[in-house]
Simulated assay, not measured.
Amino acid sequence: MLTNAPTLETERLILRSPVTGDAEAVIAFLMDEGRAKGFGYCSTRSDAWRWFALSVGHWHIHGYGYFTVVDKATEMPVGMVGIWNPEGWPEPELGWVVFDGAEGKGIAYEAAQRALQWAYDDLGFTTMTSQIVPTNTRSIALAERMGAHHESTYDNVHMGEEMLFRHLGAKAFKAGAVA
């Protein structure tokens, strides 16, 4: 394990610390402009590797970050989900991505719900955002499915214009306000 991340589970998924073996899947995702444009597209392998290393370091600085999402049935990485808050962000955000071939299976929703529960129950957050580029309609739909609402639009120092979605607060989330 490269971080102090706990291991979390859902019915179908394991959310765990990134490991060295995850680098290839993450690099492939980051170098796919069509898939990673609204997340952190990297045009070179070395930049994608640096992003992977940055993600590991984020855990050490903040005590939270992106989990690798693993499918229990195949034991393969299928995405990333977690709390992200690098320099320049307005506040911590819940972020998610699924790798090629994992779309449309409810993986992002299942993993994001579990990560949000962890943020509220274990980290003590009382509110959470997701910051989404306006063209990422699938992530907007997921945020809304989770009960988040569009709160504002701002200029992200790395991504340009982003929409800030506010998730249900910890009390409403714990009360099961979203199925």
Rank of each mutant, 00 (worst) to 15 (best):
Ala73Ile: 00
Asp121Lys: 11
His58Gly: 06
Gly34Gln: 12
Leu168Phe: 07
Ile132Ala: 08
Arg45Gln: 11
Val69Glu: 06
Arg16Ile: 02
Ala48His: 04
Phe165Met: 07
Phe165Leu: 08
Val19His: 10
Val19Ile: 12
Gly63Asp: 04
His58Met: 09
Leu142His: 06
Gly124Met: 03
Glu9Asp: 12
Trp59Lys: 06
His158Arg: 15
Gly40Ile: 05
Met1Pro: 10
Phe165Ile: 08
Tyr109Cys: 10
Val19Pro: 00
Phe99Arg: 04
Gly34Pro: 06
Leu13Met: 07
Gly147Phe: 08
Ala175Phe: 10
Ile14Gln: 12
Arg35Trp: 06
Ala53Thr: 12
Val78Ala: 02
Gly101Glu: 07
Thr135Asp: 15
His58Tyr: 05
Glu91Leu: 08
Gly63Tyr: 03
Glu24Phe: 08
Ala112Gln: 03
Glu9His: 14
Arg114Thr: 11
Lys174Arg: 14
Ala112Leu: 02
Asp71Trp: 00
Asn156Pro: 04
Thr68Ala: 12
Val133Glu: 11
His158Ala: 15
Tyr109Ala: 14
Arg114Ile: 02
Glu11Phe: 08
Pro90Thr: 10
Gln113Met: 14
Ile107Met: 03
Gly82Tyr: 03
Ser130Val: 04
Lys72Gln: 04
Arg138Glu: 10
Pro134Leu: 09
Thr68Gln: 06
Thr137Ser: 10
Gly101Ala: 04
Asp47Thr: 09
Ile83His: 01
Asp32Leu: 09
Ala141Gln: 10
Ala170Gly: 01
Leu123Gly: 02
Glu33Ala: 09
Val97Phe: 01
Val69Met: 06
Ala148Gly: 04
Ala170Leu: 00
Gln131Thr: 12
His167Val: 02
Val56Lys: 04
Lys72Tyr: 00
Thr127Phe: 02
Ala28Asp: 15
Gly176Phe: 07
Val178His: 15
Ser55His: 09
Glu9Gln: 15
Glu151Gly: 03
Ser152Ile: 07
Ala119Tyr: 00
Ala25Trp: 03
Trp84Ala: 06
Val69Cys: 05
Pro86Thr: 09
Thr7Tyr: 05
Ser139Gly: 08
Val26His: 12
Leu54Pro: 00
Asp32Ala: 14
Thr3Arg: 02
His58Asn: 05
Gly79Tyr: 02
Asp121Cys: 09
Gly57Cys: 06
Phe39His: 12
Met31Ser: 11
Ala172Glu: 15
Arg114Pro: 02
Ala73Lys: 11
Asp71Arg: 02
Val157Ser: 14
Trp59Gln: 05
Gly169His: 04
Asp121Ala: 14
Asn4Glu: 12
Gly21Ile: 03
Trp89Val: 02
Trp59His: 07
Thr20Val: 13
Met76Leu: 13
Ala170Thr: 01
Trp51Cys: 09
Val98Pro: 02
Lys105Pro: 01
Lys171His: 12
Leu142Tyr: 04
Phe39Gly: 09
